[in-house]
């Protein structure tokens, strides 16, 4: 029943979002929606490892940045068009996921230790990107404006809107697949109790590595999207902590381990952000607003905004987030 409701909800919202550009004439609002879908997509990538498998990462941006550099360097140095470059970006993201996952999960890193090691990897890559030649170093990479499907660039904001919508819908389909597949059940079992999961025949190491590889692949594609939309890339953009925070924020605010949590979170945060900017135009204000929202959500809605729509559980149980915050070693 749950699954059917998901699919109906998905089809209805997809129809609305597909039709939206015909009714919204303002380029500004189309751009805001594009950004919402992009954030929802990257939030969903975080959700797979963080929400479903319970492995929190603070450095999710590393896959985004690596994917962005992969397709951009392929384009600027080798002239490979981004429509092929995005495939390599996906592969690069998954490969980085494998490396980080293999190294940290094999040595048994969990909870805040794993989260911090991902942050360290992202920072390491930022410093590396700054110091090597082929990334353009601190100067950055400039991409040429060449609208067309081959370059994944579009003349109008509506083109990017549909591109972001496509990515977001794919991410929802991945989450739906997790909800009903054995792999998804195994990830959730790992989140709830890793030792018991292992006892019941789940190869927990392999499952966690697969999860981070999916996250990496999705992040890689997001990088290409971003590079082709904004046509400029430098280390602080590619490996910005801000994006790492945003992807976990939208997921926690919307509801971790749920299909629509990241999308709901992205909508709410961007709308709040736009409203706040309307009243006080101070750089960095969004971070303050995000911080306040995060504190309120964690305190009063540990299951996220989506928890409001769900039947209240009889007993409130500690979520994976509570365990991380309280420093429980099982988190």
């Amino acid at each position: 029943m749950e699954i059917n409701r998901h699919i109906i909800l998905l089809l209805v919202s997809a129809a609305v979002m597909l039709a939206a550009p015909f009714f919204i004439t303002s380029k500004f609002y189309i751009d805001v929606l594009t950004l919402i879908f992009f954030t929802a997509y990257i939030g969903q990538s975080w959700n797979i490892l963080g929400g479903y498998a319970g492995q929190f990462s603070f450095g999710g941006v590393m896959f985004f940045g690596t994917g962005a550099y992969t397709s951009s360097i392929l384009l600027t140095t080798f002239g490979i068009p981004p429509i092929i470059g995005i495939v390599f970006a996906i592969i690069a993201g998954a490969l980085l996921g494998f490396i980080v996952g293999f190294m940290s999960f094999r040595s048994g890193l969990k909870g805040s230790y794993f989260a911090l090691i991902t942050l360290a990897f992202a920072e390491l890559l930022r410093v590396l990107a700054n110091s090597v030649e082929f990334t353009g170093g601190g100067v950055g990479l400039f991409l040429t404006y060449a609208p067309g499907l081959k370059d994944l660039q579009f003349k109008t904001p509506t083109g990017f809107y549909y591109f972001a919508l496509l990515l977001m819908l794919i991410s929802i389909v991945i989450a739906l697949w997790l909800e009903r597949s054995r792999f998804g059940a195994q990830l959730v079992a790992i989140r709830e109790n890793e030792e018991a999961a292992e006892a019941l025949g789940i190869n927990t190491l392999k499952c966690k590595i697969y999860a981070i590889m999916i996250m990496g692949a999705m992040g890689g594609a997001a990088g290409t999207f971003y590079a082709q939309k904004y046509l400029y890339l430098d280390p602080p953009i590619a490996y910005s902590i801000h994006l790492s925070v945003e992807m976990l924020l939208v997921t926690i605010v919307g509801g971790m381990g749920t299909v629509f949590g990241p999308l709901i979170g992205a909508f709410v945060l961007h709308i709040v952000n736009e409203i706040a900017r309307h009243f006080i135009d101070t750089p960095g204000l969004s971070l303050i607003v995000y911080g306040v929202i995060l504190i309120v959500i964690i305190s009063y809605l540990p299951n996220g905004l989506i928890g409001l729509f769900r039947k209240r559980m009889k007993k409130s149980k500690p979520t994976a987030l509570d365990r991380l915050i309280s420093g429980d070693k099982d988190a």
Binding site: A185, A189, E192, N193, E195, A196, A199, G201, K317
Partner: peptide, 29 residues
């Protein structure tokens, strides 16, 4: 397969979902 002296349920899941995790050991369906 072993059980644990201190029970280790998948607390956030239902009883059915808990048992299904075990059942998935031999089926993908």
């Amino acid at each position: 397969v072993r059980t644990f002296q201190i029970t280790q349920p998948f607390a956030g899941l239902t009883t059915l979902q808990n048992i299904m995790v075990g059942a998935y050991a031999h089926t993908n369906d």
